[in-house]
Design a protein around this nucleic acid. Structure first.
Lengths: 255, 255
DNA sequence: AAGTGGTCTAGACCACGTT
DNA sequence: ACGTGGTCTAGACCACTTT
């Protein structure tokens, strides 16, 4: 593997072939992503200044700037004028907000109360394996949790994580921890959720879920199937959420 | 109103007050938005080249570039290397795709078959008025339509538009027109939908909607309440969509 | 005062599409 | 050959934060 401290070669893949050719700033961006993925800079920390990065990669500050601009636009980095550029962290509200889409019909958002109902190590079935790019039977962690707002049960989440990445994850650890789940994944296991794809459907509540949400079986629920990805675009979480959209809704912006 | 051909003043609002100060490129962006809103360049057309715009606004090409970059990132403009920069149009698939979120569980997306069930001029009730920033009782156009895929009824849309902006809009006109509704709004009424906010919930189908979708009353439906905005960020459409998420799902990306 | 990111400029050159 | 957007550079200056 290449040393990320190495400078980048200027012309770089400007071959005659139909493929190839990547702008310098894209190469810089890829190197920065690699450093993020390897944990060279941790969430919440500052990355080196633009001038330092320019020296390290042997390019102009403007080229570094363009690479950082894109990473900031994707919310992987956050720029703060006068202070520096920081690695985004789920311990900050703005990031959490992007992954928690529920908002109340009326009034201010209330803090979420999370209860872990179950956490066990199981073997991936075909669907989980496919979603997480594992093999059927590979070890995964299965978590079920209930989220309430102001004491009202509102969400049931079924979460599957690759066993290899989450070695010491137990129900006990989850119970001790207060705060967003993705924050724990970040600090305890070095896994940063950076992006996710969701598929939303309306479904009738099955008996088990209905019981947890304290509604009748058959009640319409919003079901969100999510796959979350890390820096390197590897899928690292499969999550199915059942949302009771009685006094909450799922907000979305079409840009 | 200011003449958009006028150059921009350099220092511009760099006062001592706590407010004020807007970077040059933001001022250029605002002027471009104004030109788009006034229809100086129509959807599908090219805007002037960066060099021309730089001369017109008396700034460097780099500053124009940054303004155009932002508008392109928001999908209001589309850049095509070697050809120019074009105003986005709903007659192109990429734009339509951003506002039509349904995808089939299996197989390729099928073309939507749209049937207009109703189109009448009514007076805005309190909710419609609030959403469209009108007064209660103001004239609005109310449209109900059914969308089917491969002959299967899948979506019922209830749409409300400000009467003032959509003068000649009749069921007949809608019937004659083949293609996306937003494309018609664009070409026939000069109203470009640029951005939208949605609130998603799971609801039980009421009798009327259920009948149209050919399902039993009480069937869970995904309900999407949408407000769409134009260049100037004025709300110009209120839409409630009822989606049958049996063999289709609502796709969403969390970035 | 020093260091960070933010803005603006001017110029050179490249890649793409059209003439 | 020409015009378009795309990349890269170098330098100046501004705004914000910390020392």
């Amino acid at each position: 593997m290449s040393d990320p401290t190495q400078p980048v070669t200027q012309p770089a893949a400007r071959g005659v072939g139909p493929a190839a050719f990547s702008p310098l700033y894209q190469q810089i961006k890829a190197l920065l992503l690699q450093s993020l993925d390897h944990g060279e800079w941790k969430p919440g920390e500052a990355i080196p200044s633009e001038i330092e990065l320019a020296a390290r990669f042997q390019v102009s500050q403007g080229t570094v700037r363009k690479a950082v601009d894109e990473l900031a636009a994707e919310h992987l980095l956050m720029r703060r004028q006068g202070k520096g550029t920081f690695v985004s962290t789920h311990h900050e509200a703005r990031v959490r907000f992007r992954f928690l889409r529920l908002a109340p019909n009326e009034g201010e958002p209330q803090p979420a109360e999370s209860t872990v109902l179950d956490c066990r190590r199981v073997r991936a079935n075909a669907e989980v394996a496919r979603s997480l790019e594992l093999k059927s039977g590979d070890p995964v962690v299965a978590i079920r949790r209930l989220i309430s707002f102001s004491g009202v049960p509102t969400v049931v989440d079924d979460i599957y994580l690759p066993g290899g990445l989450f070695k010491g994850l137990t129900q006990e650890l989850l119970g001790e921890y207060a705060g967003p789940l993705y924050g724990l994944f970040e600090t305890e296991f070095g896994v940063s959720m950076v992006r996710a794809e969701e598929r939303l459907r309306a479904v009738a509540a099955e008996a088990e879920i209905a019981g947890l949400l304290n509604v009748s079986p058959g009640t319409p629920l919003l079901r969100a199937d999510r796959i979350s990805y890390t820096y390197a675009d590897r899928p690292v979480e499969l999550r199915t959420g059942y949302y009771l959209t009685d006094s909450y809704y799922y907000r979305n912006s079409l840009n």
